[in-house]
Design a protein around this nucleic acid. Structure first.
Length: 194
DNA sequence: ATGCTGATGGCCT
DNA sequence: GGCCATCAGCATG
């Protein structure tokens, strides 16, 4: 397995071990403080729940690659593919602290430093990640993931954000006390616009 | 602090 | 046609 045996375990085991990892794209680097687990065929909240499609095909590949999707007509979110090849599990990268490339990140976002990567779409914007990075190999190239030497302490869990499906599963993981962790908002049905 | 709303387009049935 | 793994901006307490 090329390079990523540490990402091949069950998604619920691997997800909290991504806390404290550093995701880097060229000069900008983010230390992860909040993630969510998605477990393919058994998870109604997963993009892969209904099988393989052109959009989600990276999720079915080997671990250590990036799955990037576009949503709400204007936002990108990124996931680290984990688990064995063929099982579409992934960890949504929800928030972190910019630890390198502050000037670039500020120019891309134009927000306070605390909000540079606070939320999955903000994090992608700060890092300059979009669909062209779908399928990127995180073990080499301009987009890399570095796992922490020691697992994070003070890890908390709770329900995932923004989901209407399987909202009861406490599959969100964050580092307690981190100011970059996004505040929890339960998903609410909004009336359709005309 | 919490709450609502418009923006905006790909994706899937 | 309906649904989003969202965010910024503005409102109110």
């Amino acid at each position: 397995m090329p390079g990523w045996p540490e990402l091949e375990g069950a998604v619920l085991d691997v997800a909290p071990r991504l806390l404290g990892a550093v995701l880097r794209h060229d000069d900008v680097a983010v230390r992860l403080t909040e993630v969510e687990a998605y477990d393919g065929p058994d998870d109604p909240g997963s993009h892969a729940f209904n099988g393989r499609t052109p959009r989600n095909s990276v999720m079915f590949g080997p671990p250590g690659f990036l799955y990037v999707y576009f949503t709400y007509g204007m936002h990108h979110c990124c996931n680290v593919v984990v688990g064995a090849e063929g099982r579409p599990s992934a960890v949504l990268v929800r928030a972190g602290e910019v630890v390198d490339g502050l000037d670039t990140a500020r120019a891309r976002r134009g927000s306070t430093d605390r909000d540079l990567a606070r939320g999955p779409a903000r994090l992608c914007q700060a890092l300059g990640i979009d669909r062209t990075h779908d399928g990127a190999d995180l073990s080499r190239g301009s987009l890399t993931l570095t796992l922490p030497a020691e697992p994070a302490t003070d890890v908390r869990t709770g329900p995932r954000v923004g989901l209407r499906q399987a909202a009861d599963r406490a599959w969100r993981f964050w580092v307690d006390g981190e100011p970059t962790v996004s505040t929890y908002r339960p998903a609410v049905a909004r009336p359709r616009r005309r």
